[in-house]
Design a protein around this nucleic acid. Structure first.
Lengths: 256, 256
DNA sequence: CGGGCACGTGCGACATTGTCGCACGCGAGC
DNA sequence: GCTCGCGTGCGACAATGTCGCACGTGCCCG
């Protein structure tokens, strides 16, 4: 563990810990980190405890292994919060509802659930209730699947907490969820067909910062027969509207 | 400046400095950082000097202002390096060359330039030279513009270092470059028409980690009349191939 | 089932290190 | 030219980081 006189040794050591965790795919234990850096176990533990406290490192309670924390990863994005996200998304969400003819939701991931931070009614006069502030299960909704697709930590927590069934089509199997999330990442948008409510489908796409981090998702929801074709695949025109709206919001967020 | 007993105070302070620099768009001076955190100027300076030494902070020598450093931003990309990126991209790049009928390049941003880490020849028998290892100007190439579009620090450095003209169509104006990069971000791929070499055009798309960070770009290059239509816009079929290849590579990177 | 071992955690003594006042040089503004 | 504000670095010393040790937990093996 190299130290240059005149530099603050404990800060040098903490940066070495962060680099070590970033360099490998495996999570590491206190002992492994201490050995790798040539530090006594107690010293390494003190550093990790502090890094955990400031959010730069996270420890899996089951395995006691450490990895980089969300607080560090978020340093690359300009700390955009839910209020700012809504402010940036307002007009685009209205436009999306008008174009798609469906209701629109904007959501963020908090404590393993989707929080709806903005909701636009379907443009017709049907009976609708305002959803803003509502929490939705991440694994059973298109918004949630888009957000989970780019947040491995939250996905693990969701799987560990159990994947509840809301309909007989809800994805409740860990491997099936992983497949759905991989597909969502690959095509750039998510689809949920009767996983949350019978008869309802939803399409969602990620909102990103200029650094590319996913900080929210925007989507439409409506009856299955309107959102999907006879093979229960998303209708391309609607996908295009959702993806375009997500991009527009992302552009606004990036300019902030 | 809050301190919790039992935590290493100097590490807490260094994390507060990093968060402060991440929170605002402006670079900050020693004095401003010290005042914002309620620390004596000398203490703040010691922390910044160490953070600079470990690469987590950089100081502009002309203005003495500090910003987050590349060493910190690279921690978020899970230490994926150029070799691993090439390994993940090999087969997809071959497939892209076959589908598009054009040559393919995979690039990463290093020291303000694009380094070609992988190059696939055009499937015909025309004369071609291997480009692997070559450095290309970031602002004048589609690969580079995609990478700059997601790296504000590198963009500023490029602008500060001067935007050289390679053809009469190269973007050399700061504002024009910002517009091109915003457009690249918004549509999810980049286009360069005779900006690097007369008669040549290129289309590129970003390769991302599972967290959404852009760690490379993949693209095709060929004669203008083949890559663009009569209005010098990218041909949609080719865009589709490039974007699909970037997604496939991203999926492989995310699974690593 | 019991014992041994490895590990993570936390306490506390004390040596070392981080803190921070001060001085100086530089640049900008008047 | 003078003044002021700032960044930088030196060095005294108080505070803090270091780290050995003890303990509890979980796992493995006989």
């Amino acid at each position: 563990m190299s130290h240059v006189p005149g530099m603050i040794q404990s800060i040098e050591r903490s940066s070495a810990v962060l680099r070590l965790l970033a360099a490998g795919e495996d999570r590491l234990r206190v002992k492994e980190i201490a050995d790798a850096l040539g530090l006594p176990k107690s010293t390494a533990h003190s550093i990790l405890r502090t890094l955990e406290h400031v959010g730069f490192v996270e420890q899996d309670p089951r395995t006691a292994r450490y990895r980089l924390g969300r607080g560090l990863l978020e340093l690359g994005s300009a700390g955009i919060d839910a209020n700012e996200l809504r402010g940036r998304a307002l007009n685009w969400a209205d436009a999306l509802a008008a174009r798609s003819g469906e209701e629109v939701r904007l959501g963020v991931l908090r404590d393993g659930e989707v929080i709806v931070v903005h909701h636009v009614f379907r443009p017709d006069d049907s009976a609708q209730s305002l959803d803003t502030g509502v929490r939705l299960p991440a694994h059973a909704t298109a918004l949630g699947q888009v957000l989970l697709a780019h947040d491995a930590t939250a996905t693990e927590a969701a799987v560990a907490g159990g994947l509840d069934a809301y309909t007989r089509r809800t994805v409740t199997d860990r491997r099936a969820l992983a497949r759905a999330l991989a597909e969502t990442r690959a095509r750039g948008w998510g689809l949920s067909v009767e996983e949350w409510r019978p008869g309802l489908a939803a399409i969602a796409a990620p909102v990103r910062t200029s650094g590319g981090l996913v900080v929210g998702a925007v989507g439409i929801a409506g009856p299955v027969e309107r959102l999907t074709d006879t093979r229960r695949q998303a209708r391309p025109g609607l996908v295009e509207h959702v993806v375009a709206a997500a991009r527009s919001i992302s552009r606004d967020v990036a300019g902030s």
